[in-house]
């Protein structure tokens, strides 16, 4: 009887250790301050908005596209993403890119665009 619990306990412990270990290996933190994104040199999820005035560029040779992102404090950085501009990119209110800051730009592996809330009213002047 006692053995059963010890055996079961060991399995649970191994499972949890493995899970927590893998969790620490694969977890990615959100970062909305680009100065920290640039310092860290590790994979983060940078959140900010697309600088529309600077448009985006498509690099047909390397199959990437690049654009500028701005954080809440107004810091800007260049982001290079693989593949194609996602659906909804032009109308996105905020952008989340996952990747690492190297060689003067943010090399994104993944991009996520958030669309304007359905209930937001546009800022008006009459």
């Amino acid at each position: 009887m006692k053995n059963k619990y010890i055996f079961g306990g060991i399995i649970v412990a191994v499972f949890l250790t493995l899970m927590i270990y893998l969790f620490t290996q694969t977890n990615v933190q959100y970062e909305s301050d680009f100065t920290k994104v640039m310092e860290k040199g590790r994979t983060v999820k940078a959140t900010g908005s697309w600088v529309k005035e600077k448009n985006y560029e498509i690099d047909k040779v390397n199959k990437t596209f690049s654009f500028f992102m701005r954080d809440e404090k107004g810091n800007e950085m260049k982001v290079v993403c693989p593949g194609t501009i996602p659906n909804n990119f032009e109308s996105a209110t905020s952008v989340v890119v996952t990747g690492e800051y190297t060689n003067g730009y943010f090399a994104a592996k993944d991009i996520l665009t958030k669309c304007p809330s359905k209930y937001e009213s546009p800022n008006k002047s009459s």
Binding site: L22, T26, N27, V28, Q29
Partner: peptide, 9 residues
């Protein structure tokens, strides 16, 4: 809690 895991997890 402000973190996410990658798909590999």
């Amino acid at each position: 809690f402000g973190v996410t895991v990658e798909i590999s997890f």
